[in-house]
């Protein structure tokens, strides 16, 4: 899709210093569970993430 970011090789470490370290490697059963979740989310996630995020603008409330 237009506007979709390219997948970058290797994790980009662009967070602040105080970010959490990556979570420890999960047991195999949980890893495949996460893969299942991601597959499912891939199917419904807004295809143009950048435009979707840019378009989500709210007025302040209470």
């Amino acid at each position: 899709m237009a506007g979709q970011e390219q997948i970058r090789p290797g994790r980009r470490d662009d967070g602040p210093d105080d970010l959490p370290p990556p979570t420890p490697a999960a047991p195999q059963v949980q890893s495949s569970d996460i893969d299942d979740i991601l597959d499912e989310i891939d199917g419904v996630l807004e295809s143009n993430a950048e435009e979707f995020v840019r378009g989500f603008v709210q007025k302040g409330g209470q």
Partner: peptide, 27 residues
């Protein structure tokens, strides 16, 4: 939420600035 986001970061090598992670957060 973090478990899902870390899954994406791991699988697709995303940095925290990737708009797809923010899209996940909103959606």
């Amino acid at each position: 939420k973090l478990a899902v986001l870390e899954g994406y970061r791991e699988r697709d090598a995303m940095g925290w600035g990737d708009p797809r992670l923010r899209a996940v957060d909103i959606q």
